[in-house]
Simulated scan of single mutants.
Amino acid sequence: MPRTIFYTATTLNGFLADDADSLDWLFRVPGGETAETGDAGFPDFFAGVGVMVEGSTTYEWVVAHEHLAEHPEKWQQFYGALPTFVFSTRDLPRVPGADIRFIRGPVSEHWEQIAAAAGDRDVWLVGGGDLVGQFADAGHLDQLRVSIAPVTLHSGRPLLPRVIESDRLRLESVDRTGQFARLVYSVGPPGS
């Protein structure tokens, strides 16, 4: 079975995005524009990824922010040919040439398909927090890799809007990349 990893950046007070789903707060932090790609460990992480999974809001933000309707080649430049599953209850535009699979319903209904697409490589949960919470609820979240930025927001989209008790989380590592503190936790199954 592949490992399922949520690799993301968050504000100091636990928000992935502001109320308008913007990441402008992240890009104002030195190194924030490349919070993942500027991380020395990201290339090794990404080399082990077999499939990406994201929610509709994350997908829409990436498409708009990178102007993928006008420049679909950008998808290939960063993500290559990785299959991407997008959970959505709405019809969304496709990025030409990208292997994007729109799905609806509970994580458990699609897990086997996602795992098969990943093969022996990892599943990268790109975002958002509620979708990651659904993976945790279903027992399909193995690791959290969170880069904490020196920023706070009044409100926004929470990192992980779920109760996951400390008996399920084990701190694996702590390090620093520029202005970011990076925490890696392994996640046990529900009821562990």
Results as ranks from 00 to 15, higher is better:
Val107Cys: 07
Gly188Glu: 14
Phe6Asn: 09
Glu172Gln: 15
Arg145Pro: 01
Pro189His: 12
Leu131Glu: 13
Phe87Pro: 03
Asp142Val: 00
Gly128Asn: 09
Arg162Asp: 06
Leu26Glu: 03
Pro106Ala: 15
Ala116Thr: 12
Val62Gly: 06
Ile114Arg: 01
Arg168Gln: 11
Gly128Ile: 01
Gly50Lys: 00
Val151Pro: 02
Gly129Ile: 00
Leu159Ile: 06
Glu33Ile: 10
Arg170Val: 03
Phe135Arg: 01
Val29Gly: 02
Leu82His: 13
Thr4Gly: 10
Glu36Arg: 11
Asp137His: 14
Thr8Met: 08
Val62Met: 13
Gly105Arg: 05
Pro161Cys: 06
Leu82Gly: 05
Phe15Asn: 04
Gly128Ser: 13
Asp39Ala: 08
Ser192Phe: 13
Pro189Arg: 15
Val123Arg: 01
Thr89Gly: 15
Pro189Met: 13
Ala35Val: 09
Leu125Glu: 03
Phe85Gly: 08
Gln76Ser: 11
Leu171Ser: 12
Ala117Asn: 05
Gly14Asp: 06
Leu153Ala: 06
Ala117Cys: 08
Ala35Asp: 10
Ala17Ser: 10
Val95Glu: 08
Val51Ser: 07
Ser22Ile: 08
Glu109Lys: 07
Gln143Glu: 15
Gly32Val: 06
Leu131Gln: 09
Glu112Phe: 12
Val86Leu: 09
Val95Thr: 09
Val53Cys: 04
Arg104Ile: 07
Val29Phe: 08
Gly50Arg: 01
Ser56Pro: 00
Leu141Trp: 04
Phe27Lys: 09
Thr57Val: 13
Asp142Thr: 00
Arg121Tyr: 11
Arg28Pro: 04
Phe85Trp: 08
Val126Phe: 12
Phe45Cys: 01
Leu92His: 12
Pro158Leu: 09
Trp124Leu: 10
Gly50Thr: 01
Arg3Asn: 12
Gln179Tyr: 14
Arg145Lys: 13
Val187Glu: 10
Val95Asn: 08
Ser192Asn: 10
Val146Gly: 05
